[in-house]
């Protein structure tokens, strides 16, 4: 008889890192489907390239640094998928692949691997590509444009996203419904708000994420764009601000990344509000029409500090007081 002696608890829930990653992928499927419907097979190939490069990088890091297979937890695949969704379908495959390699090797593995990275790998990679090849990252095309799968898409007629038009007081031409359905120019995964909300609802239902960060983020952007409206109709301006650009993808899938966001309930609210404020700030005063990527990356750096200052009330301590 050989009895195992390890510490309590002796039973464990069915939760696993793998299952959580699987849920995130499931939640992203609607947005991915929308991307493929609007921008064609090339969008799907960008996703495949990003995921493959991320998984290959993870496998190499796993074998060299951790001496075990770290691909199986699924996190590298999720990073690749998330990065792809922040890129336009016209992006050169090699640039997409470089982004994934950078995300996994520089941002994740060099920080110590899963759960230890300071910055969201997908967003950090997007920021990296943005600084190196900005033109590739803003070459949006109108939905339905036929893109060459393997040839050059330099000649594809680039269309600005509705967000670009919001630099001016006038609102974009697209109807709010078109925006909500995502039938507009943009990155592969950011345009279809309906799909993103479906995915977000699934994650909240599965208790993978709490609604705090997305709600605080979206809520803050809504309030700020309503109060400091630059359009003729403040409500419409607010709605276009939420539907155009990456706020939804960022709030639901990027800002909620476990490793780079706070875990305390109050910390999550503060973090969400911070993301919202920075997003609006960058959009209003920055060089680029979009600000989600840098807003979240900056708040990433503050995640641990926010946690440290938002500890839950100690059990037994009076509200507001100390035990």
């Amino acid at each position: 008889m050989n009895l195992t002696v390890t510490s309590s608890p002796h039973i464990r829930s069915n939760n696993s890192t793998k299952k959580i990653m699987r849920d995130v992928v499931i939640a992203l499927l609607p947005a991915l489907a929308a991307g493929v419907i609007y921008y064609g097979l090339r969008a799907l190939l960008v996703v495949v390239v990003c995921m493959a490069a991320a998984i290959a990088s993870e496998w190499i890091c796993g074998m060299m640094i951790y001496k075990r297979n770290t691909v199986s937890d699924g996190s590298a695949g999720v990073t690749g998928l998330l990065l792809a969704l922040t890129l336009p379908a016209t992006v050169p495959y090699w640039a997409a692949a470089i982004g994934s390699v950078f995300a996994i090797i520089v941002i994740k593995a060099l920080c110590g691997g899963l759960g230890k990275n300071t910055f969201n790998p997908a967003l950090a990679a997007r920021a990296f590509l943005m600084l190196l090849w900005p033109s590739y990252l803003v070459r949006y095309v109108a939905p339905g444009t036929s893109l060459s799968l393997f040839g050059s898409n330099v000649d594809a007629v680039a269309s600005a996203t509705p967000l670009h038009h919001m630099q001016m007081p006038a609102l974009p031409e697209e109807s709010l419904l078109t925006m909500f359905l995502g039938n507009i120019g943009g990155t592969i995964g950011e345009t279809c708000t309906l799909a993103l909300l479906l995915g977000g609802a699934y994650l909240v239902y599965r208790k993978v994420i709490s609604i705090r960060i997305p709600a605080a983020y979206v809520g803050t952007v809504a309030v700020l764009t309503l109060v400091f409206s630059k359009g003729e109709d403040p409500v419409a301006w607010m709605l276009y601000s939420l539907l155009g650009g990456g706020v939804m993808l960022g709030a639901i899938f990027m800002a909620t990344d476990y490793a780079t966001s706070p875990v305390t309930p109050n910390g999550q609210l503060i973090y969400g509000i911070g993301c919202g404020v920075l997003t609006v700030l960058f959009r209003y005063f920055g060089l680029f029409p979009e600000g989600v990527t840098y807003a979240i990356l900056i708040m990433n750096a503050a995640a641990w500090i926010i946690d440290a200052h938002t500890a839950p009330r100690r059990f037994g301590a009076k509200k507001g007081g100390k035990a």
Partner: peptide, 11 residues
């Protein structure tokens, strides 16, 4: 041999 992913469920 697994690592914390900071999911916050423990909290």
């Amino acid at each position: 041999n697994q690592t914390c992913i900071r999911c916050g469920k423990c909290l």
